[in-house]
């Protein structure tokens, strides 16, 4: 069994499928009167968040609490971190507190890889810089599986700022592992051709309309305003017109196709409001599935002999 979850590349197909299967069991807990399992009683999970992300932190917190773990939220704001304490010193502090797992969100790519050198417990990457967000990929593939029955063989279009997206990287890697075909779509500034080397069969395309008729899944990425200032694209308006998913584009999709977004959305930029709220959209499910998948990950990392 794996000790850390740093990258979607750490997961082989059997492990990812096991997480999906366990997540399905964990999902039943949400429907019960007592939404709690005693599984991780006595274990301590630290949420070490160097970026504001209430959604992701809350999701991990709920997941850990449903498994009866003790949860410590260590946020960079207002703590010693803000006073310039290094990640290494913070890690030693957490170690001294007896953290069995550290869930880390950090603006620097690779920070979780560094952290494993400084703590004894498991490290779970909850998003590092522009690198990866493996639990997001697990919940996205879980959502695809529950909506479409399978992941293998799906055509998945990931659209937007791939260059800066940890969601895109993790999804491209995991989807390849699970046998789906991925097309990365966006302006060449944000989807450079080098991304065709990410996995053996990932493709890069610049024309969203050419990709949609074949897509079983369209995953829209959040685009950030600061990219416009760095000349990656000319204007919101042009970005939205060329790469935004509106009702007209949705009509090009096969009937069964689903629309995903990791959130938070820029409504009216990368995704039109009526598309986000349509029955094809899995955006709300993704949030619910996030808790189940993170429960499964915590169980997998912490549920055995330490």
């Amino acid at each position: 069994m794996i000790k850390h979850l740093l990258s979607a590349a750490d997961l082989d197909a059997p492990t990812a499928t096991l997480i999906h299967d366990i997540a399905a069991e964990m999902a039943t807990v949400a429907g019960r009167e007592v939404k709690k399992l005693p599984t991780l009683r006595g274990r301590t999970v630290v949420n070490l968040f160097y970026e504001d992300s209430t959604r992701t932190r809350t999701s991990f917190e709920v997941a850990a609490k449903r498994l009866s773990a003790d949860v410590v939220n260590f946020s960079a704001k207002g703590s010693s971190v803000e006073k310039g304490e290094s990640l290494k010193d913070t890690a030693w502090t957490l170690q001294a507190m007896g953290a069995d797992a550290v869930v880390i969100r950090h603006p620097a790519s690779g920070a979780p890889n560094r952290l494993v050198n400084w703590v004894h417990g498991s490290v779970l990457n909850a998003g590092d810089g522009t690198h990866e967000h493996p639990t997001q990929a697990l919940l996205d593939t879980y959502t695809m599986r529950s909506r479409l029955g399978t992941v293998a063989g799906l055509n998945v279009a990931i659209v937007g700022d791939v260059l800066h997206s940890r969601v895109a990287r993790s999804n491209a890697l995991l989807l390849h592992t699970l046998g789906a075909k991925v097309t990365l779509v966006g302006p060449p500034t944000l989807v450079p051709p080098v991304f065709e080397t990410l996995t053996p069969d990932v493709r890069v395309g610049y024309d969203i309309d050419a990709v949609l008729p074949e897509a079983d899944v369209v995953m829209m990425l959040r685009v950030q305003k600061e990219r416009m200032n760095a000349a990656f694209f000319p204007s919101w308006h042009e970005y939205s017109r060329r790469y935004g998913l509106d009702a007209a584009r949705v009509r090009r999709l096969p009937d069964h196709a689903i629309v995903m977004h990791p959130g938070p959305m820029n409504r009216g930029v990368e995704i039109a409001p009526d598309v986000a709220d349509s029955p094809r959209s899995t955006i709300v499910e993704q949030v619910a599935n996030g808790v189940s998948v993170r429960m499964a990950c915590l169980y997998l990392l912490l549920g055995g002999r330490s």
Binding site: I22, E25, Y299, G303, G304, R305
Partner: peptide, 11 residues
Amino acid sequence: LNRHSTRAVGH
């Protein structure tokens, strides 16, 4: 649980 490697979860 913590005396064995992680077990698969049944239905």
